[in-house]
Amino acid sequence: MKITELIEKTGWKVLAGDPAASPDAEGVYCGDLLSWVMGNGEPGQVWITVQVHLNVVAVAMLREFSCLVIADGAEPAPQMLEKAAEEGLTVLASDLPVYETAIMLREAGI
């Protein structure tokens, strides 16, 4: 699924990046422990996390995730969003907790 379509369906706010240029979403991964995500995530997945530190961007890029969804209304550090924009990583914001955010992705068809 295209990230632009996902945004239309969920209404999530774009915090950084260009959704039109993001790789299509092909699944979902939820996690906040970076090594766990690094070891188990798959390319093309939408990554849901409440981690808002700069290092999240490095993991998302190395793991080749489609985009990042910051759940539970967590507020990303400005440096994180600057880095994401620089790297071309789309960062979306969901006010709902991780579980409900994942359900929205499921209902959106991912």
Partner: peptide
């Protein structure tokens, strides 16, 4: 910051 999962060396 999300480190310390204890998965580094095993990964």
């Amino acid at each position: 910051m999300g480190f310390g999962a204890g998965m580094g060396l095993p990964n």
